[in-house]
Simulated assay, not measured.
Amino acid sequence: METRDKNQDASPGMIAPDTTSPMQAEIAVETTGTGGTHPDLSKAKKSPTPFQDSLRRLRRDKRAMVSLGLLIFFILLPILGPPIYTHIGSTYNSTTHGAIGPEKYHDPFNQELDRQDEDPSGQYWMGTDGLGRDLLARLMQGMLISLVVAVIVEIINVLLGISVGILAGFYGKWIDQFLARFTDIMFAFPGLLFSILLAGIFGSSADQVFSKVPLIGANGNARLVLVSIALALVGWPFMARQVRGLTLQLREQQFVEAARTTGTSDLNIILRHIVPNLFSIVIVQVTLDLGTTIISEAGLSYLGLGVQAPGSSIGLMIYDASNLVDTHPWEVLMPSIVLTIIVLSFSFLGDGLRDAFDPRSKD
């Protein structure tokens, strides 16, 4: 009893005296082997890293994983779908174009005026619109446009948000004051209204400037550059504020102080110690912003300020079919359902990522 009490009273940082009898020691050696170490104890299980813990929490979130699966499907569909879809089907005798194959009648811009507003069929899997164009082909094209705009906007948001947030949080003083006031000014602009104003004023000029640029100006996509810039200008301040707050905490950590002590330059400290620790907050914010950007682009196209005819966008498809709700509801329901699923999936995945990388956010 006295020996056990003495061992319990020993401080954690000190080794307690060995009170084991020679007979007990001999039995222990025979039990554990010649080395005196049990084989199972020598293979200690490696503890998971914080990143692995976050991924495990994310995998347990069924809603987030279902959303991730849906997003992967809707990302791959507009990329891999058109090359496959344009090779499915047989030759068709069109009254407008003569004998044409699936690469022609499954083109999102091909018009068959004698086949307007058809129901889904073996040839047109989702039917046709008011101009006899393949709805599935146009939907895949519209999804691609929305995703491209969202990615461009988020790249600009990340670059501006991280740059401004790190400079303000790391250096502080007058740099922080200046950038904070500039960010507040950008916060004062209502995002969608500013985008509408910019697209409305410079939309016609953008059509003329970018109309002949390959990929950008073709098929009514000239205003996408303007829409992307407008959405990015009003989207980065929130990212910058989030990054600034975390940078203020990181710059006071011991590993940053140790790097300063060893003479590491500010640029190296930022790139090696600050930026990698911003991963969780940036990826969560980007995921949440993607849904907002997609619905904003669709709203601008619906108002006639985004993609122009004969181009294809989810918002433009909803607008073109809005007067056919009573007679052909399928034409407006499908793009609306796809837009809703994409936006909700980004929102649920963002919530799951936030809970996984920052469990305290649930409290």
Rank of each mutant, 00 (worst) to 15 (best):
Y92C: 06
V164A: 07
L215Y: 13
T86V: 12
L250K: 03
G245W: 00
A168C: 07
Y105K: 15
T86S: 15
Q24L: 14
E297Y: 05
G122R: 09
I79Q: 01
K43L: 11
M126R: 01
S211G: 15
G203I: 04
K104C: 07
D355T: 01
G220V: 04
L147Q: 00
E103N: 12
R354F: 08
P83H: 06
D351K: 05
T95G: 12
V164R: 13
A240F: 02
T264M: 03
A180V: 10
F255T: 01
D176H: 10
H97N: 15
L144G: 11
M14V: 15
K362A: 07
P102S: 09
I318N: 02
D176Y: 12
Q24S: 08
G36S: 05
T86E: 12
Y319I: 05
A137G: 13
S312N: 08
F194Q: 07
L248C: 01
F238P: 07
L160I: 15
D266E: 04
L271V: 02
T96D: 13
P329V: 02
I274M: 01
E257Q: 12
G191K: 09
N221G: 15
L58Y: 08
G33S: 06
D134W: 01
V325S: 01
P39L: 03
Q254P: 14
D358Y: 11
V275L: 00
L77I: 01
P359T: 08
A99H: 11
F182P: 00
L300P: 04
G306D: 08
A64G: 07
I318W: 04
L353M: 11
D119Q: 05
T287D: 00
N219E: 09
V234D: 03
V225I: 10
D355C: 02
G350D: 06
M143S: 10
G33A: 05
E331L: 05
D176V: 13
T264K: 08
L305K: 11
N277A: 02
V66S: 10
R56S: 13
I185M: 08
Y85W: 09
A356I: 00
F189R: 03
A206G: 07
Q253T: 15
L131F: 04
G220A: 10
N277L: 02
S94H: 03
I341E: 04
A232I: 09
I337F: 13
S336Y: 05
L197E: 07
A180T: 14
R260S: 07
E252K: 13
L305G: 14
P82C: 04
Y124T: 00
A137C: 09
I270K: 01
S347P: 14
N323Q: 02
L224H: 10
W330C: 11
F178Y: 14
L333Q: 11
L113F: 12
T183L: 03
I314F: 06
K6D: 13
H97L: 15
L135M: 08
E297H: 10
R57G: 09
A99T: 11
L197M: 10
M126F: 15
L278R: 00
L226A: 09
P310F: 08
V153W: 03
I295R: 13
M23F: 13
A309E: 15
R115V: 14
V234T: 05
N219A: 06
G35E: 11
G101Q: 07
D176I: 15
H328E: 04
P17D: 06
Q308V: 08
G122I: 11
L135Y: 02
P17E: 04
Q8M: 09
